[in-house]
Design a binder for these strands. Structure first.
Lengths: 214, 214
DNA sequence: CACAAAATGTAACTTAGGTAACACAAAACA
DNA sequence: TGTTTTGTGTTACCTAAGTTACATTTTGTG
């Protein structure tokens, strides 16, 4: 599939034809692979990413050491964080890392403001994105404030399985510990407990989710 | 001051004169007092509140019992949560409670979409609001994920002092415990420790912040 | 004033989760 | 093939924070 077709395909049904054409004309398609840092904390953002395929994880970092996964972004989404940065010319407050390989359409920031006045569907999309991101942040807050680590862990595994389209999660205990801002020993301990409850199966460097194979 | 003047006063410098006139014509001023529930979880929002005076606290609730203060809103601000609700016709995910007495301008939702296409300053305001709210949620996440309760408590006291424009906080330990999703005993213990460190002074039903009297 | 309600102090105990230390097995690699 | 490196399991211990229980004091209020 060429660039034109990919973009048509992704945004058909979301935007009016005219806007899709504008996007196709303005966008530059950029492939990425697992682990790529797409947005770094403290950097200004000059082009807005629209996710075509793949998944991206949004991380928050403590001022001295800690790190925390906020949420995943999937196909057709964009990062409202980025929207805010573009609109306000602010530095990024978050880091975006590719969870797996995929493709983003990069659109120059100045088109955004233009489309805001011009296309109702674009405004709706922007609001929808904001709303989704808001809810994901709220969800992150709920997890942190109201849930214990074992629940957060299980939840994390399910989310990771979902965005990777598999029930096998290829991550080490150490990696999971980073994303949940915990320690490897604690994660190993809780994983073992989950295994004993029959909810997961542990292998070296990967974890199988039992039941509900997404 | 009459309605016209209050609105002129609050938004001069933020919006163009024409938009301010539209706001003044469309808005209904509503006074509120401490403890009033301005927005309830699960309710639809038909009019958008713009805060003229006073402070509002935004709370998140756990599905079974817990509660947590997300952030305070002050003069000239609006609740991005509400913006999202209005734009998307969604139920509110948060509860808004008056921290003290004040005044909001209520604007019918349909004007919002209209102004989005019409006024650049309105678009900028909406983005700015979103951005602020985003950062407050991120801040809330930082506190939850990376700070201990004693730091969160001190931080909370300072925020509460700031929005109330005083260094004396008129809250009971129980109330504070609710807002931090903790228990009264823990809060009393930590407050006592902070008092021993000379950072605060405890009285019945109020707490004095030492130094940096806002 | 007497009594109830509200606010706080404090002790004793439990638990989730963090930390340090070390053993061991699978993988990578020279 | 032998030797690191990486990933995991496990023990022992520590601390922040939650829980229960009860005492004390202040503040209404009939």
């Amino acid at each position: 599939m060429n660039q034109e077709e990919l973009i048509q395909d992704t945004f058909r049904g979301i935007f009016e034809a005219e806007l899709i054409n504008e996007i196709a004309a303005a966008a530059r398609l950029v492939p990425f692979k697992e682990g790529d840092v797409l947005i770094e904390i403290g950097r200004y953002i000059k082009t807005m990413p629209l996710l075509i395929t793949g998944a991206i994880k949004i991380m928050r970092e403590d001022f001295d050491e800690g790190e925390l996964l906020l949420y995943f972004i999937e196909k057709g989404d964009t990062c409202a964080m980025t929207l805010a940065c573009c609109a306000g010319d602010k530095k990024s407050e978050i880091r975006a890392i590719a969870e797996n390989s995929g493709l983003v359409a990069m659109v120059p920031v100045n088109r955004m403001e233009e489309w805001m006045g011009k296309y109702k569907s674009w405004r709706a999309f922007v609001f929808e994105s904001y709303n989704n991101r808001f809810n994901e942040l709220l969800s992150a807050i709920d997890h942190l404030a109201f849930m214990h680590m074992d629940q957060r862990l299980l939840n994390y595994l399910r989310e990771a399985a979902k965005v990777n389209g598999t029930h096998v999660i290829n991550k080490t205990h150490q990696e999971i510990a980073y994303e949940l801002n915990s320690s490897r020993v604690v994660i190993s301990r809780l994983l073992k407990a989950l295994e004993n409850e029959g909810k997961i199966k542990l292998n070296r460097s990967n974890i199988e989710l039992s039941g509900s194979p997404t």
